[in-house]
Design a protein around this nucleic acid. Structure first.
Length: 559
DNA sequence: AAAAAAG
């Protein structure tokens, strides 16, 4: 496979012009699609960005407000050690070695400044491995959970790559825009979240990030696109719409990232995704660089990987921030009719312990949209400020619910599975599975909304006769995470029939393995010495270590 | 069966 421009030759290379501001670029500067870019190599020669940079809204402003609103958290001390022994496995051809610090990767001064603004001290395991792989121009299939820091893992190489890219002539369509990178995600909120993060990472770099998703006026999004776009973050439906209107062309795409790929397939997006990736004008694998992120690797994802990626590197990171030591999991037997009063008891106890008053948030998962509405109403009636998020609410309502929850105005959020994956809400201290999901993977994602960024969290599940199919996988999962399994649950589990397929975990703490190693004839692995590149690192023998000294308020790049 | 996503 051929590395895209700015591939491996940049890795580790010294750069004399690093940090040099080119000002208004000299000859070769051209105005293009609302943006002026300079010619020549090196960093930051998107000189015309000056005008825009001064107008650019500071994406870090909200962080300060949020910190003030919530006050200093006591449990903000990050437990980095908890992550040091996360198992990581890579395989493939010539895997670039992982890095231990951001400093040793040459991401460019603008991006480095933003990493400092984000207060990221050191890369997470998925970042240590994924960033050098992507900077080396290689395709990547990563098995990583949300909360593992994967947004930065795919954003950094994209932003860095675009920053250092030579001026690329983009076709000029009357109203068509030509993004250089596309990030697809399953839900609108997740797209928003990725957009917000990407904006922080690209602040004052001249790299423009735009988000497009359904439920919001397309006019506003079109206007944003017309002002110039380098990285487009989108949900599949709205993107197909934009493509069909010929307002967006994928012809210039050099980076493609699919987030939560398994989720997108679960939601029936495969036709749209294949249309976007294979049937429009996107460059083929090997020309573009592709990153596929998925928590699990069923057959459908493996097929997607063979079709979308070229000579990729497989990366698996152990479960992080979910079902680990950081989350205390409790299961209680609660009959359907007792659920509300039981929840009330929990909330009262929480309030008495002062947890409530300290703006710790409680996320309550229910099975249906109707159930979400009625529980929210009931909670409010009983003096607990709550709001709700689900697919029957308008996008405006969804977003304002999320804001109100995050700000602590309504510290209880009743949610359907729309909020189960990927959403990163700081300060969620308690996740209640009011209705348990049928799939253990959904359970893992839901409880992963707490215990993030090294903080501890509690997850309480209401279990009853309707959840028997979950008894075995749930008790296995809890055992694996060294949680106390109630005797009654173990009894149900031992009686339950071994349900094959979906609920069986394979590979222990890993969500999947590189299937190319299992099959003798694989389209993706034509070379005979393919398996030679396999390397595995169970721990991090980091010389010098990261011996601590992180005070409150300092975060790593987990979220 | 329910949830999500394009109106």
């Amino acid at each position: 496979m051929q590395a895209p421009a700015g591939g491996s030759r940049w890795v580790g290379g010294s750069r004399p012009d690093l940090g040099r501001q080119t000002g208004y670029g000299g000859p070769g500067v051209q105005n293009y699609g609302g943006r002026t870019v300079g010619g020549g190599g090196g960093w930051n020669n998107r000189s015309g960005g000056w005008d825009r940079r001064e107008r650019e809204v500071n994406p870090f402003a909200d962080d300060v407000n949020a910190e003030q609103a919530l006050g200093e958290q006591e449990n903000t001390v990050i437990n980095f050690d908890a992550y040091e022994d996360i198992p990581v496995e890579t395989s493939g051809d010539n895997v670039p070695p992982p890095v231990n610090t951001f400093a040793e990767i040459d991401l460019g001064e603008g991006l480095n400044a933003n990493i400092r603004r984000c207060k990221y001290v050191k890369p997470t395991p998925v970042q240590r491995h994924a960033i050098p792989i992507s900077l080396g121009g290689r395709d990547l299939m990563a098995c990583a959970q949300t909360g593992s820091g994967k947004t930065a893992a795919f954003c950094f190489p994209i932003i860095s790559g675009i920053m250092r890219e030579q001026y690329v002539q983009r076709p000029r369509g009357a109203r068509t825009v030509y993004p250089l990178a596309l990030i697809l995600s399953p839900t609108r909120e997740l797209s928003c979240q990725i957009h917000e993060e990407a904006r922080k990472f690209s602040y004052q770099t001249g790299v423009k990030v735009v988000v497009a998703y359904g439920g919001a006026p397309i006019k506003d999004q079109l206007r944003e696109l017309e002002r110039g776009v380098d990285i487009l973050v989108a949900t599949p439906g709205r993107l197909v719409d934009l493509l069909e209107r010929a307002r967006v062309s994928l012809q210039m795409i050099r980076y493609l990232a699919l987030d939560e790929a398994d989720r997108m397939l679960d939601m029936g997006f495969e036709p749209q995704i294949r249309k976007i990736v294979e049937q429009m004008d996107m460059p083929p694998p090997g020309v573009r660089q592709t990153m596929l992120f998925s928590a699990t690797f069923p057959k459908e994802i493996q097929r997607l990987a063979s079709d979308f990626l070229a000579n990729y590197i497989f990366l698996a990171v152990g479960r992080v921030g979910s079902s680990t030591d950081l989350i205390v999991q409790r299961v209680e037997f609660v009959h359907e009719s007792d659920k509300r009063s039981h929840l009330m008891d929990l909330l009262h106890a929480q309030r008495e312990n002062g947890v409530h008053g300290k703006q710790s948030l409680t996320l309550v998962f229910v099975e249906t949209k109707k159930g979400a509405d009625s529980l929210e109403y009931w909670l409010c009636m009983n003096g607990f400020p709550a709001t709700t998020i689900h697919g029957d609410r308008s996008q405006q309502e969804r977003e304002s619910a999320l804001r109100s929850f995050k700000s602590g105005k309504t510290p209880i959020l009743v949610a359907t599975d729309v909020a189960a994956r990927g959403l990163d809400i700081p300060h969620v201290a308690h996740v209640v599975n009011f209705d348990l999901p049928n799939d253990i993977d959904d359970y893992v994602h839901r409880i992963g909304r707490t215990g993030r960024a090294g903080k501890t969290g509690v997850a309480t599940a209401f279990f009853n006769e309707n959840n028997m199919s979950l008894s075995r996988p749930l008790s296995e999962l809890m055992q694996e995470a060294n949680q106390e399994v109630p005797a009654w649950l173990s009894r149900y589990a031992s009686r339950a029939t071994l349900s094959g397929g979906k609920n069986r975990r394979s590979g222990g703490r890993f969500g999947g393995r590189d299937f190319r190693r299992d099959s003798s004839m694989s389209r993706a692995a034509p070379s005979a010495d393919y398996y030679g590149g396999m390397n595995s690192s169970g721990g991090y023998g980091v010389p010098g270590g990261y011996g601590g000294g992180y005070g409150p308020g300092v975060t790593s790049a987990w979220d």
